[in-house]
Write a protein that binds this DNA or RNA. Structure first.
Lengths: 141, 141
DNA sequence: CTCCGTGCAAATAGTTTGCAACCAA
DNA sequence: TTGGTTGCAAACTATTTGCACGGAG
């Protein structure tokens, strides 16, 4: 019987699920992303800073490469909301987002499943890969 | 009574509506955008090439500056679909788009008005500025 | 005549890549 | 050992900006 270390297990399992080699850097980033089981929407920049804050050091290029690897493995999904920068979402199903224009933050929108009536049908020979819904918010007033 | 030149009037009117000074470059780009009255989804690159093809010459920087000016004047709306490059849509109301992943093309989706049931409500103190809906298409099979 | 608009080149922001050193299997 | 991974710097792409010239009002 082995003791479970709550600090690293979650990220480790997560990486294993995608057959990604558990290197020091990947474990660190994985734990920052899913260590507490909460969904996250991060930018490469944010994740790089978070790694630093945690004391460890990872190069920015590696953060990008790693996020790309996670995306290709289906562990996260990439969301682009305005030309400058992508967000990576640890929740990978198709769901709507809030984009807070004032502070350039992305969060999940609501909790209830959303439904689109009269969703345009895919043209002949095409199929719908995904429907991106981004609700842009601004301060009222 | 004045004769109406169908080759330039539409773009001219369009610029006038936004109080934008009708320079040679702006008239050219405006006509390429709305000259035939059809809605268009263009990239800066495409518009720059189109200008060239038409014989006239406009610098790429001016194309960018001009598209920015048109956007700020509300003549077009900017749509970002994946990190690389923006599209500018001559139709400015809030409507859904098809994004053809295989050839990186953006078009209007369907003709019927779309409706979203259970659209998440804006959080306290916030209001919904816009709802971006992009339906990603890929070849079936 | 006075500014706004334009062109060019250089700057910028975000992201990717080449290559040598490194490390998990 | 060996091929996948990392770090750094340089390359890249899309876009913006500084500045001198030019044209619209």
């Amino acid at each position: 019987m082995q003791t479970i270390d709550p600090n690293s297990t979650r990220g480790e399992t997560w990486l294993a699920r995608a057959n990604l080699r558990p290197t020091r850097q990947r474990l660190l980033l994985a734990d920052l992303l899913v260590g507490d089981g909460r969904d996250r929407h991060v930018t490469a920049e944010w994740l790089h800073d978070a790694a630093r804050r945690s004391g460890d050091r990872v190069s920015l290029a590696t953060v990008y490469n790693t996020l790309r690897a996670f995306t290709e493995a289906g562990l996260v999904q990439e969301i682009t909301v305005d030309g400058t920068g992508s967000y990576f979402d640890t929740r990978v199903d198709d769901h709507p987002h809030f984009y807070w224009e004032d502070d350039a933050r992305l969060t999940d929108a609501g909790t209830q499943p959303m439904e689109i009536v009269n969703l345009p049908a895919a043209p002949e020979g095409m199929e719908i890969a995904k429907v991106d819904v981004v609700i842009r918010l601004r301060a009222k007033g």
